[in-house]
Design a protein around this nucleic acid. Sequence first.
DNA 1: CGGGCATTTGAGCAAGATCAAAATGGGTGG
DNA 2: CCACCCATTTTGATCTTGCTCAAATGCCCG
Lengths: 224, 224
Amino acid sequence: MAAEQLGWIDARKLGQLRRPAGSVLITEGGTDERLYTLLSGWAFRFKSLPDGRRQILNILLPGDTMGVQAELLSASPHGAEALTDVDLCAFRRDTLLVLSREHPELSFDLIWLAALGEKLTDDVLLSVGRRNATERVAMLLVHLYRRAVSAGLKQDDSVPFPLTQMHLADALGLSHVHVNRVLQGLRKGGLVRLSEGRLGIGDLRALRRVADYWDQPPPRRPLL
Amino acid sequence: MAAEQLGWIDARKLGQLRRPAGSVLITEGGTDERLYTLLSGWAFRFKSLPDGRRQILNILLPGDTMGVQAELLSASPHGAEALTDVDLCAFRRDTLLVLSREHPELSFDLIWLAALGEKLTDDVLLSVGRRNATERVAMLLVHLYRRAVSAGLKQDDSVPFPLTQMHLADALGLSHVHVNRVLQGLRKGGLVRLSEGRLGIGDLRALRRVADYWDQPPPRRPLL
DNA sequence: CGGGCATTTGAGCAAGATCAAAATGGGTGG
DNA sequence: CCACCCATTTTGATCTTGCTCAAATGCCCG
């Protein structure tokens, strides 16, 4: 990216924030939310029902942005919360609009980014709608492991893993008790190591087989 | 939208197609997919697992676009199929890229559109992950009824409804047998009328209460 | 009339939820 | 260093929702 573009983006930056683990980054339904980039730490987006049931939509790692929907729609359709201490880069509310005007050459990247975001939640929807509990857990662990590795977080064959079993449950549409049992099964099978806030994969191939998760799958449905 | 913009868009149009109900509009995993706008009829986007389980991601009504992800990512991460006979407007593969360059003033609308699309699947994810069967069915029926009405499809207090119970099941992460039973319950309660390809709502308020679904109508969309 | 779908019904079953309680394990303040 | 607190994980028991399997019914269309 050219220096000029970086300079422009920098000018739109409202500031850099640090927030402790567990803090609310975006309030669900809030109308005055900003656009953020996650610089360090983990966070997640979620929606909830009036009676408290909650669905985690997405886990956010460094480099991810949040608040695009909040900026474009009138109220934020989801909330976001920090899983660890996080560093955020905050932008002005109208950044997207102004950027699309003043730096059209970047707006294509934003469209691309938005499409990628939708692909991600499409994938999750497939899991939650059609995979069983073991498949879902395996799937999510492989997915997060992969992303954490490519975010450069791997150390000693494992990556940090700040999610509680409750978070896993809310992300997968399961009860936390059941998540616990599934996890024990995977551990016993030597497929994963998950303790003290770190995740290691014992047998990636087997885990992917469990999850039915292959990245370039040519899944073709038999001719009905 | 200015005449110049419309003219430009028109120039990118490859042609207008008619496809019969049940035909494949986008093949899952396909690499040579186009960008389409649905002019008339109903369709849906879906993903499937190697063993044939299928998740419907989204129902498409006239005015909706499909293939954005297919155009931006290297292979289409989802398929799309026609529910009724459809008319499509097809665009060149690189339309988005070129548009963002030549008509930057429109690219913001695309970002906006993409954000709306993600909000939609986020909503579905909440349903599938955290609502029970009755709530899910009620929710989806209200949602589709609303959209069909605002697409001007209402006649005689009901809207066309081309989905089979199998489609509902695949959209909601349920078995079609169970969908059938839930539907009977809603009918018995006088909440919905659903037969012969048409859907009517008996008691909207009650249905929304069942679905725990309170959400103001989606904002007006730009472009097309 | 007959073949293919879609819908419906019934029976049995199982995955996963719920409820309750015990064990673990830091973190904090005394 | 210890005692205590609170969140998280684990275990056990029971129950329910929704699935599976199977078959019947109805329906559209050639």
